[in-house]
Amino acid sequence: MKLGLALYNALTAANVPADKAEAVVDALEAEMQNQLATKHDLAQLELRLYRALLIQTLTLAGLMVAIIKLL
Score class of each variant (00 low, 15 high):
Met1Leu: 07
Met1Arg: 10
Lys2Arg: 01
Lys2Gly: 00
Leu3Phe: 07
Leu3Trp: 05
Leu5Gln: 15
Leu5Asp: 11
Leu5Asn: 09
Ala6Tyr: 04
Ala6His: 07
Leu7Lys: 04
Leu7Trp: 04
Leu7Gln: 01
Leu7Ala: 05
Asn9Gly: 02
Asn9Ile: 08
Asn9Met: 12
Leu11Pro: 06
Thr12His: 10
Thr12Gly: 10
Ala13Met: 13
Ala13Gln: 13
Ala13Pro: 06
Ala13Val: 04
Ala13Cys: 06
Ala14Ser: 14
Ala14Phe: 12
Ala14Asn: 15
Asn15Leu: 14
Asn15Arg: 15
Val16Ala: 02
Val16Arg: 04
Val16Trp: 05
Val16Phe: 06
Pro17Trp: 03
Pro17Arg: 12
Pro17Glu: 14
Ala18Thr: 08
Ala18Leu: 09
Ala18Met: 08
Ala18Asn: 08
Lys20Gln: 14
Lys20Ser: 00
Ala21Asp: 08
Ala21Leu: 06
Ala21Lys: 06
Glu22Ala: 05
Glu22Trp: 03
Glu22Gly: 05
Glu22Cys: 01
Ala23Thr: 06
Val25Met: 04
Asp26Ile: 06
Asp26Tyr: 04
Asp26His: 10
Asp26Met: 04
Ala27Val: 03
Ala27Asn: 08
Ala27Gly: 04
Ala27Asp: 12
Glu29Phe: 01
Glu29Gln: 12
Glu29Trp: 02
Ala30Asp: 14
Met32Pro: 00
Met32Cys: 02
Met32His: 06
Gln33Met: 09
Gln33Ser: 14
Asn34Asp: 15
Gln35Ser: 11
Leu36His: 07
Leu36Gly: 03
Leu36Lys: 10
Leu36Pro: 02
Ala37Lys: 15
Ala37Ser: 12
Thr38Gln: 10
Thr38Met: 09
Lys39Ala: 09
Lys39Pro: 05
Lys39Asn: 08
His40Met: 05
His40Lys: 12
His40Asn: 02
His40Phe: 04
Ala43Ile: 00
Ala43Cys: 00
Ala43Leu: 07
Ala43His: 07
Gln44Glu: 08
Gln44Thr: 00
Gln44His: 07
Gln44Cys: 02
Leu45Val: 00
Leu45Pro: 01
Leu45Gln: 08
Glu46Leu: 07
Glu46Trp: 09
Glu46Gly: 00
Glu46Asn: 10
Leu47Asp: 03
Leu47His: 09
Leu47Val: 00
Leu47Gly: 00
Leu47Trp: 05
Arg48Asn: 01
Leu49His: 09
Leu49Ile: 00
Leu49Asn: 07
Tyr50Thr: 01
Tyr50His: 07
Tyr50Arg: 07
Tyr50Phe: 05
Ala52Val: 00
Ala52Pro: 04
Ala52Gln: 14
Ala52Cys: 06
Leu53Pro: 02
Leu53Trp: 11
Leu53His: 12
Ile55Phe: 09
Ile55Leu: 08
Gln56Arg: 15
Gln56Val: 01
Gln56Glu: 15
Gln56Pro: 02
Thr57Phe: 12
Thr57Gln: 15
Leu58Asn: 11
Leu58Ala: 03
Thr59Gly: 11
Thr59Ser: 13
Thr59His: 14
Leu60Ile: 08
Ala61Val: 12
Gly62Val: 06
Leu63Trp: 12
Leu63Ala: 08
Met64Trp: 12
Val65Gly: 10
Val65Lys: 14
Val65Asn: 09
Ala66Pro: 04
Ala66Phe: 14
Ala66Asn: 13
Ile67Thr: 14
Ile68Arg: 15
Leu70Phe: 02
Leu70Pro: 03
Leu71Arg: 15
Leu71Asn: 13
